[in-house]
């Protein structure tokens, strides 16, 4: 390869940094969504690079459903402390008080209240005009057409038929702040799951240990292995947690996230396993299976 060639990973890195800087230059009050997952870790890492030696000039926002894995929360707090990130945490306490939980309410209703609604509230409360998210186009069919700058109206809603054309690396960041318009920004749009892992490997990025195999208490439910992370987990009759060596390909609320049986304990192992795998990462996510086109519906309502 010639001296003046960028590898695909270096190109993706440069393009993501460009997007993060562009938003910071053109928006008044951006925020970076921090979901604690591997994509968020990569995005936060890119934000550090974009402004080095300065820290990222925007806060990080975590939508806490109160049902995240405990290891995620401790990882989040450690990462933000070590990197000096300005962390904001928001929970839809109204829904918590109403007793909305992933067991009694379908994953649909639960996700809407604890994630979508909570996010919309937090963005409005912080008067953020741009919110970075770690979503990738390869994750799901409706994401394949998502823009890098995803325009949202005052109700944070997404209209798939009315998105702005995006050409070259010229992003249209003009919005009407008086009307409460905002954008969601996806700097990792063109990354694939493999790219994310390759980059984590190359840059030695710290990720939540839940991605690596370890004996964990699980029950088998509806074809998914669900980890019993705390005593709020309601066991169905006949269910007994047992220790299995598992890991997670994707992280979310523990009762809604399926684990996979695996012995992959390092990034190399994970990549090896993924390259030989035959199912997609979102398969472990209960919420995508609700109905055909469900992600599209959630996005219309304001989900990331």
């Amino acid at each position: 390869m010639s001296r003046y060639t960028l590898s695909h990973l270096e190109q993706l890195e440069a393009e993501s940094i460009h997007v993060i800087r562009e938003v910071t230059a053109e928006f008044e009050n951006p925020v970076m969504l921090y979901s604690i997952g591997k994509d968020s870790s990569v995005m936060a890492h890119l934000a550090k690079k974009a402004f080095h030696p300065a820290p990222p000039p925007f806060p990080f926002l975590h939508i806490d459903t109160t049902w995240k894995f405990r290891e995620m929360i401790s990882f989040r707090d450690r990462m933000c402390r070590e990197n000096g990130f300005d962390l904001k945490v928001h929970t839809n306490w109204k829904a918590v008080k109403e007793g909305i939980n992933p067991f009694d309410h379908g994953s649909d209703k639960y996700t809407h209240a604890m994630k979508t609604q909570a996010l919309v509230e937090a963005l409005a409360a912080g008067r953020y005009d741009a919110a970075f998210g770690g979503a990738r186009r390869d994750e799901e069919k409706s994401r394949a057409k998502e823009r890098v700058y995803s325009f949202r109206d005052r109700n944070a809603q997404w209209d798939p038929k009315n998105q702005r054309p995006e050409l070259w690396n010229l992003y249209n960041g003009r919005i009407d702040r008086q009307k409460g318009e905002s954008i969601r920004v996806f700097p990792l749009s063109n990354w694939t799951e493999l790219d994310v892992w390759l980059y984590i490997h190359r840059e030695k990025i710290d990720v939540v240990p839940l991605y690596f195999a370890k004996p964990r208490p699980v029950v088998e439910r509806g074809g998914n292995l669900v980890m019993v992370d705390d005593d709020r987990m309601r066991l169905e009759p006949g269910e007994t947690p047992r220790m299995e060596t598992v890991r997670f390909r994707t992280l979310g609320c523990y009762p809604l996230t399926g684990a996979v049986r695996s012995g992959a304990a390092t990034v190399g192992d994970v990549v090896r396993e993924m390259m030989l795998a035959t199912t997609s990462e979102r398969q472990g996510r209960v919420i995508d299976h609700d109905a055909e086109g469900s992600m599209e519906q959630k996005k219309r309502e304001g989900y990331f």
Partner: peptide, 18 residues
Amino acid sequence: LIARDVEAYLDHYQKRDL
């Protein structure tokens, strides 16, 4: 190659162009 030497594989894979 993955089975034999995942590091070598990663090294090769991340250097591909686009």
